[in-house]
Design a protein around this nucleic acid. Structure first.
Length: 560
DNA sequence: GCCCTTTGACCTGGT
DNA sequence: CACCAGGTCAAAGGG
């Protein structure tokens, strides 16, 4: 039975009795979140609460993860009952959660992958996100001002600057290995397994984890084109495949649509010079809709790049699937269901970048919105999805490990994050970077490690979600106090003591790898805090964390 | 018959 | 103007 769980990043303050020192455990990196961001794909009906979704996921023991972008996250400020979003199943103790892959560890401070929340996982959550972000050209453009960008990618080559440059190709495999190496060096404890990249180094290098920037500098908002770079997954698995996997009865037509909710007709295919991958041209089948997209696929059929041109002038077509019981399930998966997916560094990124109009498919469209945003800018963006949530998906990079996690973040409070795990790790937890010594000593900012996500497992983020615009962060900053209360909603099970996500953080990790060091060369958590947390942790197993200081520091780290 | 993919030919823009 | 490459058209074929 696969275990799944969801964690809601909440304010530790809310439940002093039961809060963990997240920082101690938090290890997810920005990169992870940022890059991870978005893939579209799954959508759950808006009306459904997160709790419902979680229940579904956890229910029956059958993993229902479908890497589709989750529906809007109705995370609301404290007013909303946290329990509705997250509840620990009876009989499941927090301690169990800690051992469970399900545990989420998002740290309070983590920015969501999609929005640029701050992942604190220091471990090896795979940052395909980096690739992903790069992949999402539009995203980048729209959020060029995103202050976290530098950390987005562990790999130097993948930095935004590269992203902006036209046709920048990054060998993620190589970089990744390098990154891993660093991580290993830093890891003081267990480090049993490596990234798949090592397993299939060549494959990666050959693949296009490339960022072909067709656009001008990030600052420019191209109204017409939104590009979504995609990394190829091993599975051959494309969303369609995944859909089939999850929904055998789905018709071909539905599958086609499933990619981004719109209907496309292929009108041409060309072999593009300079690339061995054929490029397919699609038009939106909706009458008079000018939207087109180019899809580049690798030889094995995996999508390597998607470029959208134009915007839909119509709502997303209604999908029968969505209306059905399956509607709550992800339509597309950024991550192939099979373990193989993890083998490829770049995850399959979802294609999607169409305006989101359908009330039914909320989740799917971080990209869609982003494309719209590209036209109108961030301001409209905010208006478009006031309640929007951002998702990013991650997949454990361990070969054959089916575990996936996705992070859902409330738009109103970037720190309010729900991390949901799907499946159970079939391997040991990789050694955490610097584990055992709590990130205290990293004097140099390690962006490369930023990919690591919570709980020490390495995850691949197939779908980069859009990073949070700086403006959001600003707001976030402004509302820092509020977020502490609101954003970090403590998740309370009706029957159980409330606890914060921080509790879920895996022990081996330490906080904020990557950006934590941005200032003063120290880890995000100061030593004192770490010690305190450590102490607390050792005493209780669950420690109460002083979050506010950390948050402040954390935020500051971005400001400077 | 509808809708889609395939695929070679054609068109267009840049050099 | 020729060449090249990307993009598009449209007939043919399949489910």
């Amino acid at each position: 039975m696969a275990s799944s769980g969801g964690s809601l990043e909440t304010s530790a303050n809310s439940h002093p009795n039961f809060s963990f020192s997240s920082s101690q455990y938090m290890t997810s990196s920005f990169t992870d979140l940022l890059s991870g961001d978005n893939q579209e794909e799954d959508r759950v009906s808006v009306s459904r609460g997160l709790g419902d979704r979680i229940a579904e996921r956890t229910g029956a023991g059958v993993p229902k993860f479908k890497s589709i972008p989750p529906p809007l996250l109705p995370i609301s400020p404290p007013s909303a009952s946290p329990s509705s979003y997250f509840a620990i199943p009876p009989g499941l103790s927090p301690a169990e959660l800690l051992d469970s892959p399900v545990l989420l560890s998002s740290s309070n401070i983590l920015p969501s992958p999609t929005t640029g929340s701050f992942p604190t996982n220091s471990f090896n959550w795979r940052g395909n996100s980096g690739g992903f972000q790069q992949g999402v050209k539009q995203e980048v453009r729209n959020y060029s001002d995103f202050s976290f960008q530098p950390q987005i990618r562990p790999l130097p080559s993948s930095s935004l600057s590269n992203f902006q440059s036209s046709k920048t190709t990054t060998s993620m495999g190589g970089n990744y290995q390098g990154q891993q190496q660093q991580q290993q060096n830093q890891q003081q404890q267990q480090q049993p397994w490596n990234f798949q990249a090592s397993a299939k180094p060549n494959g990666y290098s050959d693949r296009k984890n490339v960022v072909k920037s067709e656009f001008a500098p990030l600052q420019s908002f191209s109204p017409e084109i939104s590009t979504l770079q995609t990394n190829t997954q091993s599975n051959g698995g494309h969303q369609s495949d995944y859909n089939q996997y999850t929904q055998p009865t789905q018709t071909l037509r539905e599958q086609r649509r499933s990619e981004d909710g719109y209907n496309w007709r292929k009108y041409g295919q060309k072999q593009v010079k300079g690339s061995e991958n054929p490029r397919s041209y699609y038009k939106c089948t909706f009458p008079n809709c000018p939207t087109k997209k180019k899809v580049e696929r690798s030889l094995d059929g995996q999508i390597t790049e998607i470029v959208y041109k134009g915007s839909h002038n119509h709502p997303k077509p209604q999908s029968t699937r969505r209306s059905s019981s399956q509607s709550s399930q992800p339509i597309q998966s950024s991550v192939a269901p099979t373990p193989e997916v993890s083998d490829h560094f770049g995850s399959t990124q979802m294609e999607s970048a169409t305006p989101e109009n359908s009330s039914l498919s909320v989740g799917d469209d971080d990209f869609d919105r982003s494309s719209q945003r590209s036209k109108s800018g961030c301001d409209e963006l905010e208006e478009e999805e006031p309640e929007a949530k951002r998702w990013s998906y991650y997949k454990c990079t361990s070969t054959n490990c089916p575990v996936r996690k996705h992070v859902e973040r409330a738009s109103h409070d970037l720190r309010a994050v729900i991390t949901t795990y799907e499946g159970k790790h079939n391997h040991d937890v990789p050694a955490a970077r610097g584990s055992g010594s709590h990130a205290v000593n990293r004097s140099v900012p390690d962006h490369n490690n930023s990919n690591n996500s919570n709980n020490n497992y390495n995850y691949l983020a197939p779908v980069p979600l859009r990073p949070i615009p700086t403006s959001n962060h600003s707001d976030h900053m402004d509302n820092n106090n509020n977020t502490a209360r609101n954003g970090r909603m403590s998740m309370t099970s009706e029957a159980q003591a409330p606890f914060t996500l921080e509790m879920l953080d895996s022990p081996g990790s330490f906080g904020f790898s990557g950006f934590g060091n941005s200032r003063g060369g120290g880890s995000y958590m100061n030593q004192q805090q770490q010690q305190q947390q450590q102490q607390q942790h050792s005493d209780n197993g669950f420690s109460k964390t002083k979050e506010e200081p950390r948050e402040d520091m954390f935020l500051e780290s971005f400001l400077y």
